[in-house]
Design a protein around this nucleic acid. Structure first.
Lengths: 113, 113
DNA sequence: TTTAAATACATATGTTTCCTATGCATTAAA
DNA sequence: TTTAATGCATAGGAAACATATGTATTTAAA
């Protein structure tokens, strides 16, 4: 992980929910690759973190799954449930509020592009 | 804590180092109150998190301490060491980079004030 | 004046969250 | 043919923070 790993803590669920809100359905490996690409390798999700989190979100009723076979290889697709869609918005808003608070606290200036 | 507590994880050291970079010396209780005020009660540091972290930063050589008595009550002031000043800048920059990455990833718009 | 709240420190134990390591298996590329 | 990439999964451990508890002084409220 490019960032000291503590920083990522607490954001993984938010990242997953947000990606699924934009993609209808994604499988685990695809999520890791998408995050890697979008962040320029700065965030690389480990499987040991990703899969247990996906299972947890499913157990919470936020995700639904469908399994497909690509040749002989299994692929498990995840989609947002109705609750998952709501939760996705909540999580992103909460994070936006959090970074707003932290920027003020840490006196961080942002380039107005 | 106003924010779901996972979010704060990984930011506590950064917050402490930043505050001390602006205040020369502060004691533990003062840090909790300052953070509480600056964030409008959104971030309330618990003692069980704060004091062990202060001790850890001191053990890492980032903080120096001086104990004073206010009447009969002890008060322990913390200041940044030379390494602490360097680390403070590093941590704040890292966090700024992190939120920049996350804003892109989560597609969060910021008001250009 | 007594009691609650605020000030001020500290630590043991627990929980959450993520990482490391490992395992299995298929497919594509070197 | 063997390494890298694809694709899933879980056991065990580490890190970070919360909860709960403890001690003690000072101030404000009842």
């Amino acid at each position: 992980m490019f960032f000291s790993s503590e920083l990522i803590k607490g954001t993984l669920k938010t990242i997953i929910l947000k990606l699924l809100s934009e993609n209808k359905r994604m499988y685990g490996y695809e999520i890791t690759q998408t995050v890697k690409e979008l962040t320029g390798d700065k965030i690389q999700l480990t499987e040991g973190a990703l899969y247990p989190t996906l299972h947890a979100l499913e157990a919470e009723g936020l995700l639904t799954t469908e399994t497909e076979y690509i040749g002989k290889r299994v692929r498990k697709y995840y989609s947002l449930s109705k609750d998952g869609k709501t939760k996705s918005l909540e999580k992103v808003n909460e994070f936006a509020d959090f970074i707003s608070t932290m920027k003020f606290l840490l006196d961080i200036k942002t380039k107005t592009t």
